[in-house]
Amino acid sequence: MYHVAYFLDQLINGVTLGAIYGLVAIGYTMVYGIIGMINFAHGEIFMIGTFLSLIGFLLLGLLGIGWVPLAIVIVLVVAMVFAGFYGWTLERIAYRPLRGSPRLAALITAIGMSIFLQNYVQLLQGARNKPLPPMVTGGVELVETTNQAGQPYVISLSYLQILIIVLTVVLMVVFTYLITRTALGRAQRACEQDRGMAALLGVNVDRTISLTFVIGAALASVAGLIFMLRYGATDFFVGFLTGIKAFTAAVLGGIGSLPGAMLGGILIGLIEVFFAGYFNLEYKDVATFTILVLVLIFRPTGLLGKPDIEKV
């Protein structure tokens, strides 16, 4: 019984962690779909998202808004808006001027932006870890059992975990609607297929690409908010590993595929949590990285990706 309970516990943890990776992975996959490049600074946008949420909560605390659901909704909106500005600026500076330049140049500007943003936040906010007191506490007890030592062991679904899962699902539904049913979504898919043709047909390609970065950044900032609520601390370097893992999620799901990104995120979250829970905590990052390399060798199109036919 204890083993089942432990397993369940890990499962819930894995899914919530996976939600974070999935939301960040969507940004990678969308940008890759539309301009065919990896947005190296996307992890930093996530990092800024965590800081935006932290500042938001502190500010609301100072203003005396103490009702947690309201505070979370306000911070959510504020973080998405401000992170969107970062996404927009990133595209404007690092990618747009270099369309048509050697690919290497755009990769380097992106990595330059990433280094810049890391150090910008470090200089402004200090290098130390910033903690946030738990905002959402309590939960529903699911199972009560005893562990090997005979002590009681409670498996519960905390309100926070419920919140994270609900938030992610709602966002995914809204987002899927946006991509499949609206003019923006159509424009985006058109640009993915053939940017030149889309422009000829009156799609504002620049704006569509900008909006893609904005949406990706907004989703990353939600991931940042969830990260703050769940782990309660951030620093200027959290974007680095999260970025690599979210990218792994995007590749595992099939880069360019939106459901793939979410699926990949959850898989990576589960793999990481189970590896840490059952095998070895220190090497959990190495495990995800190994998955990245294995997927690239054996199935570069990922689980849900389309095969990439080379243009000759």
């Binding site: 490049m37 990896i38 190296f40 690919r103 290497l104 990769l107 990595i111 680095f240 590993l241 690599i244 990218f247 792994t248 590749v251 220190e282 090497y283 990052d285 190495v286 990285f289 990245l292 390399v293 690239l296 060798i297 570069p300």
Partner: peptide, 27 residues
């Protein structure tokens, strides 16, 4: 494994590899 793929993949895999080497050295 990665040099057969597109350049961006190499970039991110090397980025990860640098960090992983450090994790391994540490542990």
């Amino acid at each position: 494994p990665v040099l057969r793929l597109r350049g961006d993949y190499l970039a991110i895999v090397t980025l990860g590899f640098g960090e992983m080497i450090r994790v391994v050295l540490q542990n």
